[in-house]
Each structure stands twice: as C-alpha cells, then as structure tokens.
Nucleic acid binder design. Structure first.
Lengths: 212, 212
DNA sequence: TGACTTAGATAGTGGCACTCGCCAATATTG
DNA sequence: CAATATTGGCGAGTGCCACTATCTAAGTCA
C-alpha cells in the first residue's frame, strides 16, 4: 500500500500523513527504495486512532504522541495505565495549587487520597476554583451526588477492562478514558435537556441548531 | 476604579482587558473624558467570569461572547437556557451526521428525542463514531450504565436550579453546565484511580506528577 | 520513453489569544 | 504651572499550533 492509498483508505490528506510521520505519531513504512515505502493495515489502524485522539478526544499532537508511546510500551503496574491516559488530558499548569481541599473531598467520597495522582487532584481543585471565581457556589450535597454518579461510572470502567491480555487492557483503558469523555458530556447535555423539558417545561419546541 | 486597578484586582494584564473590551466580552467603562474611564465591581465580576469560561471551561473567545450575550438577554423559555450553554461547547461541524443511531439510544434511555437539540445529538453520534473508529467497541450495557449515571447528574442539575429569579436561573444553568464539566471529568479520573487501586491492585505507589 | 508518484526537507498558511507600541489627551504630582 | 505618569483607542506584531504547499531527486508503471 502506497501513501496515496493510505490517504484514500483513511480520508487523511497525504500532506497530513507526512506530517504525522515527521512528528513520530505514525511509524515509518518499509522503504522499498529511496523514494518509495510500503504501508499496511497497521498504518490504517494507527491513523484512525490518531484522528480519534486528536479530533474526538481533542488531544494535542504531543499528548497524542505520549499516549501512543504508552500504548507501545505498556508499564508493568496495572495501575499506571491510567496515569498515561490521565496525564494526556490534564492541563499541566506548573502553578502548585493547594491540595488540602482536595484531600477533604477525597476522604469524604472514600477515594484514598494517596492512590490519586497529584495532577488530577490539582485539576479538580482548579476546576472548583474556577467555578467559585465565577460566582457559582456548588453546594456540598450536589458535589456529593456528582461524586456518587462518577464512582458508578468509574466502577463500570474498571470492571469492563479485559484481564486476559495486557495490551488489550492498555488499549481499553486509554481509549475508554480519553474517547469516552466527549460521549459522557454529550450524554449529560441530552439528559439535561430531557430533564429540563419534564421539570421546567418547555413552552415551545427546543432550540434547534441554527443559532447563528 | 481605573483600568490598572481593575487589572490588579483581577490579575489580568491591562493589554488583555483592552482586548476583551475590543472583543465585546467586557462592557465599556463610563468615560469621564476622552482618555479616561471608570470601572466598577461589575467589571471585576465579569472579568472573573470571562477568565473562568475561557480558562476553566476552555471556551473560545467567540463562544464566550455568545454565552455572555445570553446571560444579558435571557430567553423567555426556561428550556432555551440550556441551548445557549450547550451551543457554546458543541463543536459545530457542518457535516450532517446520521442522527438515527442517536434516536435509538435516546429512546432506550427514555430521553425524548424531540426534546433534544440536534447539535447535541450530533455530538453524541460523532463521539461514538470516533470511539468505534479507534477500535473501541462500547458494549450497550456499559453505555446504558453511563446513561443512568448521567441521568442522575442531570436530574440533580435541573433540581438545583433556583426558581425564584430568572437571572439567577440563567447564571446557574450556564455556569453549572459549562464550568462543571471539568469538575466532573476530574472526579471520574479520581474515582477511576481509586477503583483501579482497589480492584486491579497497584503494585506500588501511583504514578505521581513529574511524567516528563 | 514519458507521464505519474513518492520520500524527504523546507517553507508557508490561517486561526487564535493575546501582546506591544504609539499618540494625543488627560490626570497627578511637586 | 510644569513635569511626569496614565489612559483610551487602534493597528500591528507575536508565538503557538496543526496542518499545507512546494520543490527536487529518485524512483514506478504503461
């Protein structure tokens, strides 16, 4: 398979494939001469994965590279899989936030603070801080309810990880974490619309697309 | 309050404030002469809100402008509030996706398809499509479990909306939708880490920040 | 043989969120 | 009142990012 065929098979422009090759997101094809290389199904799969991570999950190119690197070199610990996926989506801000408020919440929800990544805790603190800065006071009861729902989801996540193969587990955890986020958010919005229609009552038909 | 004091009070550079003024994110101050204007607490609050929407929620400047516009001109229908918030976070891709698969899911989850915004349905379809393109087959049972959890959350969302004032409801819905998303995602990651530690068992201490 | 394709490298594009510099007009300070 | 600092308004520049275009030498295929 030549590069133009790879492009046709994945609907990705040739120039973009070359860019991914340069950026080491996509592994090189087999050179058959100085100006020809062969690509195969592994490139097709990889390219679709790259597009999903960049397009659907919204990762940056460098974060995508790290995730793919993790997929190829699975860590020994079964727990570290998550770290790779979580690190990719956690906006790492070097400003050290105060994690004590996170500790309190994690204790309350029964999530061992010592088993949780500091960056992720910082992400929670930053998100809550942004909320309060904007003048939104989230009642503790509401947060607790959110936490219970997310624990449900996380348990489903962890239980659904295949245990037979390390590679399969790796793939599952990373994709299940990264690519499921937009699914969950879309679900929440749809559920909100449904719930608001039932409780608040829509006076007329809901707002449809063309809002511009 | 002069612009430099406004900058000091919000920790936003003067040049950036001027940029927000130009982009109509921040309302003008009261001109006291050709080259002086006064700002007040409303500007401080607005600026913090802008920063939260752009920084925490990750909105673009133009999406932020639309949200702020919606905050000032609340729609009559109580249901349309959501549309403004949801439109801001929904990557509007002009490619018309096939919504029939979404209809099936919405029916199964008891969310009236006719009460749901098309853009949001399209977002769900696109997210699920990205998932399958990457080689991740989400079992229906898993999606159902996710949907149940998100319905819990959405009900909590809708119930917590204050009913006394239209402005308060507006503010609550928009911030609760947009700024809560990063909170929820961080919660899911923490819950995953906690659950994975308990079920899969971490062989050693979890991966801590410095992954670079 | 001659039209077409490719690897590899360099350079350019468009969008975004700022950021800078300037100027005339004004405010503040001594 | 004079010297200094600040401001509104505006055009232009910056840095980053994800591509995208172009070029050349070296092939492939009919």
């Amino acid at each position: 398979m030549r590069i133009s065929q790879l492009a046709a098979a994945t609907d990705v422009p040739v120039a973009t494939i070359k860019y991914y090759l340069r950026e080491k997101l996509l592994h090189d094809g087999v050179l058959t001469s100085a100006t020809q290389a062969r690509y195969d199904d592994s490139h097709v799969r990889r390219l679709k994965l790259i597009r999903a991570l960049i397009g659907t999950a919204g990762l940056s190119v460098s974060a995508t590279r790290e995730v793919l690197l993790g997929l190829e070199n699975p860590p020994e610990s079964g727990h570290d899989l998550l770290g790779i996926a979580h690190h990719a989506v956690t906006r790492t801000a070097p400003d050290d936030v105060d994690l004590s408020s996170a500790q309190t919440l994690l204790d309350r929800w029964g999530w061992g603070a010592e088993t949780c990544d500091r960056d992720t805790q910082a992400a929670l603190v930053r998100a809550l801080h942004g909320l309060s800065e904007a003048g939104f006071d989230a009642p503790a009861a509401l947060l607790d309810r959110y936490a219970a729902a997310m624990q449900d989801i996380a348990e489903a996540d962890v239980e659904s990880v295949p245990t037979d193969s390390a590679e399969a587990a790796m793939q599952h955890v990373i994709l299940g974490t990264l690519l499921m986020e937009p699914v969950l958010l879309a679900m929440r919005r749809l559920a909100q619309q449904s719930a608001s229609f039932q409780l608040l009552g829509g006076t007329e038909s809901p707002r449809q697309s063309g809002a511009q």
